[in-house]
């Protein structure tokens, strides 16, 4: 039987299944969010539109900062005089839960906004999920980046891209 009431297409159902069932589990793309995937995607998309940005723009910005961080080979690097970025790599590859081909390296970037002190953590895979799928991960996921937080820490706004 399909899930009832029907919230989303079977492909999103399959993606949700690939992310693993998450009841109070910490390591999960959905975190402990009980909303169906389509609702998470829709609400985050609304947030992004309200900020005047697009998924690609956010993904692109994160990618650019990650590239700068990689130059440090693990040591922190100062970028644009206001961000301290450092990259860490772990062994292994992760696959995209939406069924895209390709494996993503487990490099993750830690960014600290030197003016506000806030920090942001993201990985290669989470960048792909944001740019290609508009998926910012469920509440409670360790790599959840709400669009508002990204915009606040990175200082992104309608005018800046």
């Amino acid at each position: 039987m399909a899930r009832f009431p029907v919230f989303q297409s079977p492909f999103l159902d399959a993606a949700e299944k690939r992310m693993g069932s998450c009841e109070n589990k910490v390591h999960c793309y959905m975190g402990d969010d009980t909303r169906p995937l389509s609702r998470i995607l829709a609400e985050d998309e609304a947030e992004v539109n309200a900020l005047g940005l697009t998924h690609e723009a956010i993904g692109h910005r994160l990618f650019h900062l990650a590239e700068q961080a990689k130059k440090g080979l693990g040591s922190p690097v100062v970028v644009e005089d206001r961000f301290l970025v450092a990259v860490e790599a772990a062994r292994g590859k992760l696959s995209c839960p939406f069924g895209h081909p390709g494996l993503f390296a487990k490099t993750h970037v830690v960014l600290v906004n030197q003016k506000t002190g806030e920090s942001l953590v993201w990985s290669d895979l989470s960048m792909h999920l944001i740019a290609e799928h508009g998926f910012y991960q469920g509440k409670g996921s360790p790599y959840r980046l709400s669009p508002k937080k990204i915009a606040a820490v990175l200082g992104l706004s309608r005018a800046s891209h």
Partner: peptide, 11 residues
């Protein structure tokens, strides 16, 4: 196999 047979890793 890295994805447990879900056709996402291609290994």
């Amino acid at each position: 196999s890295a994805c447990g047979g879900r056709a996402s890793c291609g290994l």
